[in-house]
Write a protein that binds this DNA or RNA. Structure first.
Lengths: 204, 204
DNA sequence: CCTACCGATCGGTAGG
DNA sequence: CCTACCGATCGGTAGG
């Protein structure tokens, strides 16, 4: 979805998805509070009040972007670990899909990490709950690996933050036009994750 | 410095440092554009126009916070690697001081990473130059270690972003009231950095 | 999809 | 350090 009808030189055909896409680009670039709805409208070549034919408020735009992203993150985690019994390969895949998402959905990732505190309730609580669930699942994975002796960490909680936040930060430096594809970066990061978690024999 | 005269129940004695400290807390919490100067003033129990006895603009507050922090990061890096010839111990110390800073200067770190794009020129360029210098220095460290065979990485650039951004993210989860001290976290993160960089024998 | 317009709030100044 | 006040801009509504 998305980007389709938000192309700079595009004509008419504004849709809710186009408004959301324009908002996503601008929120990612300038932040939620740093973006005026007049800028979103200008990007779509319409006047500010016309936006209200496609959305109900600025806050709703933010809520949709952040909640959808957070739900997808959790769904991708579940799909990644599903059917794998080896804790190391579960961690590897969890890190891979998380890093991959942050390379392929950079705008959404930047918004989630920058503007989550600007959300109104009840969406804020829903998003924080999804985030906690993901953090806990990764922490449990690392703790289990440590118990079984296949991972070596001092503090599972610290290692899980190290792993997760490292993946998140891909959104801050990755460029689709760069020398590496999103998949290649995700592959390297899944390896980094195992190294941070002290996977024996991980180097090389 | 700082926090001293910004205590909630405090009386009078507003200084430039107190204004900057109150702004640092609020910018970190709500973002630069999400913070009104009236909130900074309220925190100091004065009226908004009185702030102008201690600063010249909201933008100047941001510029001071971000530029000072960026300069300190570079100075700390130089001090950390100074006098060490072993590339592994240089990387370890660089990661340690960077992680330590992000545990001890959480507010400033959050502002730098969230609101750097809101800076006016010429400060924006100065800050980006300092950041590039730091990134390049760490990348060179990892590349040198790979050349000498003491580190094993696929792409030094990717590994250096992994290491640096992992350290940065300490600001997003560390709590001074938690079970670990800033120094203990920094120690674990310096170990993570060596693991990511494929330091042979790093696990355990 | 538009023009016209709203109250609220913003950063900042005047002038003491 | 204050009150009084400024122009600009914000998100959003009325009404077509």
């Amino acid at each position: 979805m998305a980007t389709v009808s938000a192309a700079p030189g595009d004509r008419a055909a504004v849709t809710p998805a186009a408004v959301r896409d324009a908002a996503t680009t601008l929120f990612a670039e300038k932040g939620y509070h740093g973006t005026a709805l007049s800028e979103v409208a200008a990007r779509l070549r319409i006047r500010t009040p016309s936006l209200y034919n496609h959305m109900s408020s600025k806050q709703e735009l933010l809520a949709e972007i952040v909640l959808t992203t957070s739900q997808e993150v959790w769904a991708e985690f579940e799909a990644a670990v599903d059917g794998r019994d080896d804790v190391v390969s579960r961690l590897r895949e969890a890190a891979r899909v998380y890093a991959l998402r942050h390379a392929t959905h950079r705008r959404e990732a930047l918004i989630v990490n920058r503007d989550v505190a600007s959300l109104d309730e009840p969406v804020l609580s829903q998003v924080l709950e999804l985030r906690r669930r993901h953090e806990r699942a990764v922490r449990d994975l690392i703790a289990e690996g440590a118990d079984r002796g296949v991972l070596v960490v001092e503090t599972p909680r610290v290692a899980s933050f190290g792993v997760l936040e490292m993946c998140v930060s891909v959104a801050r430096w990755f460029s689709p036009g760069g020398p590496l594809t999103a998949e290649q970066v995700a592959e390297q990061y899944s390896e980094f994750a195992l190294r941070v978690a002290g996977h024996v024999g991980a180097p090389t």
